[in-house]
């Protein structure tokens, strides 16, 4: 079964006269290990779609099966549990400022039992090494560069062995070089683990990492095309 299966997703903000549909009848599926880029002008509904898949918002209409969990009518605690199995990467790194890079990565492991503190920290250290930050593990985010912080965020998203990675403009706050570095790192790590990625971006410099690019406009998917 595909990690993500959406059919007939319709979503609107507001009610009555103020009701504004941002997603109309969206169908989308992502196969295991696939890297899908979601592009489109702002207001096209791609971020809303991402938050629905990420179980950050309650569904309205349609069916969405993410990592085997049906989201239509899912309870809050079901959604919280599902989020633990998804790796999120945000536009801003959103690292906890009072924790070191290693502790930040370990935070995504604390949700899962069966691991001792030492195991969590070792694992976090290995993830940081995988994103090339082995020497910066004990630094707080304030002493890391923007690209390094986003790499910590990548390590954090991947450390919990997620079944799916959702990223929203991960390169928006970064310069060209570090942005590409982060995205390539993300792709390589995901590919090794067979984790599918859904990445929302405006950034034309990173389109080449995608297996498939999906363009959205006005709440609909307009052109599901294979990447060159």
């Amino acid at each position: 079964m595909n990690p993500v299966e959406l059919s007939g997703i319709t979503f609107a903000y507001g009610e009555g006269a103020l009701r504004r549909e941002v997603l109309r009848e969206v169908d989308l599926s992502i196969s295991p290990g696939e890297i899908v880029l979601l592009t489109g002008p702002s207001g096209s509904g791609k971020t809303t779609l991402l938050t629905l898949i990420g179980a950050l918002r309650a569904m309205q209409l349609g069916k969405a099966r993410v990592l085997g969990q049906e989201l239509a009518g899912a309870s809050e605690s079901d959604r919280v549990r599902l989020r633990g199995r998804i790796g999120f990467i945000f536009q801003n790194h959103n690292l906890l400022g009072f924790l070191t890079a290693r502790q930040n990565v370990a935070m995504s492991l604390e949700l899962h039992g069966g691991m001792s503190e030492a195991e969590r920290l070792t694992r976090a250290g290995e993830m940081l090494a995988a994103v090339g930050l082995a020497d910066h593990a004990e630094k707080p985010p304030s002493r890391l560069s923007g690209g390094q912080r986003q790499r910590v965020a990548v390590a954090r998203a991947l450390a919990g062995e997620p079944g799916l990675i959702l990223a929203d403009e991960p390169t928006a706050a970064l310069d060209k070089v570090s942005g590409q570095e982060v995205v390539r790192l993300l792709r390589d790590l995901a590919k090794t683990r067979g984790v599918p990625i859904l990445l929302v971006t405006h950034d034309p410099r990173i389109l080449d990492i995608a297996d498939r690019i999906v363009a959205m406009e006005d709440g609909r998917i307009v052109q599901p095309a294979k990447a060159a």
Partner: peptide, 12 residues
Amino acid sequence: SEYATLKAMGYS
């Protein structure tokens, strides 16, 4: 925003 991130990561 850190708290929201933790929630997104699956913290209840």
